[in-house]
Amino acid sequence: MKKIGILNQGLWNNHPIFRQLLGMCPTLAVTTSALNGLAMGLAVIFVLLFSSLVVSSIRRLIPQNVRIAIYTIIIATFVTIVDIFFRAFLPPISKALGPYIPLIIVNCIILGRCEAFASRNSVTSAFFDALGMSLGFLWGLFILGSIREILGKGTILGFKILPSFYPPMVIMILPAGAFLVLGVLAGIMNRLER
């Protein structure tokens, strides 16, 4: 039961995007389409899961004064693996996400969860925390990307869904649209919680 509670923290109660407002750079920058959001979310699931597992399993060996440096090295390793994987097997997605894949290294969700949770809890708890947080990040990005893609291009995952007389709102694809949608969604989350 406790594990489900931990999982739920990331999925809803303590949602990384709409509650903790972490990882804003990738959230705002890559969600120009639903597919990009999905790919970024999957990359973060991989990185967060593995770095949390590693950090949690070596937490007793890590000296306090260099812990952040060690977390960063571990995170950077997994991010580089994702980057290489995308370049080798999914070049179109790698092209679309551009520099944002390497920038997962400085995504504060990952460092934040390593420091606040994985370094203080058992490997299984760390696994569920990482899973919950990254799945929460994934659905957040997917919703954000879908709304921006529907309003900005009239398509979802590349399929046309809005009738052709609908004029696409280019602002939704631009950074300003990201802030607008994020603000509205965070507001809705707050309202639902009350």
Binding site: N65, V66, A76
Partner: peptide, 14 residues
């Protein structure tokens, strides 16, 4: 010494 050792080891492994 321990800090330096751990940091170096982890960097090398990665």
């Amino acid at each position: 010494f321990w800090s330096v050792l751990v940091l170096t080891l982890i960097s090398c492994i990665c």
